[in-house]
Design a protein around this nucleic acid. Sequence first.
DNA 1: CCACGTGGAGAACGAACGTTCTCCACCGTG
DNA 2: CACGGTGGAGAACGTTCGTTCTCCACGTGG
Lengths: 192, 192
Amino acid sequence: MGSVAPTEAEVRVLDAAEELFYARGLQAVGMDAIRGASGVSLKRLYQLFPSKDVLVEAYLRRRDERWRAALASHAEALPAGRERVLAVFDWLERWFAEDGFRGCAFVNSFGELGGVSPAVAEAARAHKDAFRRYLGGLVTEAGAPAPLGGQIALLAEGAIVTAAVSGDPGAARTAREAASVLLAPYFACEPR
Amino acid sequence: MGSVAPTEAEVRVLDAAEELFYARGLQAVGMDAIRGASGVSLKRLYQLFPSKDVLVEAYLRRRDERWRAALASHAEALPAGRERVLAVFDWLERWFAEDGFRGCAFVNSFGELGGVSPAVAEAARAHKDAFRRYLGGLVTEAGAPAPLGGQIALLAEGAIVTAAVSGDPGAARTAREAASVLLAPYFACEPR
DNA sequence: CCACGTGGAGAACGAACGTTCTCCACCGTG
DNA sequence: CACGGTGGAGAACGTTCGTTCTCCACGTGG
């Protein structure tokens, strides 16, 4: 599964692609815009990514890895348990408040091309699956029953889409409170 | 706010637009495809909807009205109260299991064009707002505190996006169970 | 100096698409 | 029959975009 070390031009292209695709959508961004934003010539761009589809898939792959790594690194600053589960929602809230937040890149891509591109649909499915499994792990390692992971994942998904469409980062806090209630029976006597 | 009675051609165009836009996305469907599916000539199509943007907005407007009316008509078959709130998730489950279900048309449209078309972003915002307010009404008329409406709305949103991306209608049941737990404290002694 | 490969800038090409225009068949009225 | 208006089929137009091609400047090895 190893990618070789990416060249600097590759990084610049992927950075530009991520910024533009996420902000404006996949189809609204042309290869020319990516060339302009990355400063990489069209010829080199097509050497690195032989078609736009390939670039879109690379964008989604890198975004998936980075997003989940950032979440994990935030959650794992806390000891396993209830607090670590709830920390997910704190991380979401910070994300929602970032400039240019526009929801989940995978949900957006799925909405745009999921009906027409199996590769995009599959990337979204895999990302959401990994997220759900990760959350499930947090929940069971906290000592709560596994099915609760699915419920808490639903709250997180709902918060992401609601924060995106309504523009209100507070959805994260609402979700956190609901998750806290769902978790409560398994941590009966601990405070907060 | 009255629209005049729609002509038969208008209905045929909107039916075709809804089917195609929902299944494939907004930008992936050309005016020619809508003309073909509706059997209405291009000239007439442009008389009825002077541009694709206008047609997209009409599609979203009609879909919003119909979707919320269908939900309301299902929920209101039950008496106000806890059951009526939970009935929302039963209705969602049936929707998820329909052929061609591909998530929320507004979330999909927002993902595709929300970053680039204020009209689409606003349509999605308004739809989600109305849904949240409706659910809030169900919750408070059941005697539960209003903030619970927001939590339950998050579960519903999460179920919709999860069912769409993963293809599993069971997300509705997971959400229903979580909602039932959140509701429980306010209906302490009733069964099921 | 020359041959040569590399890479950049941007023109060019072909397809798709939104929108408009042309042409014609059809229909009701004098 | 002449005539005008309506609407359909689909060609045409202009633009955008993914992709490829042309041209040239530059640096390297003989």
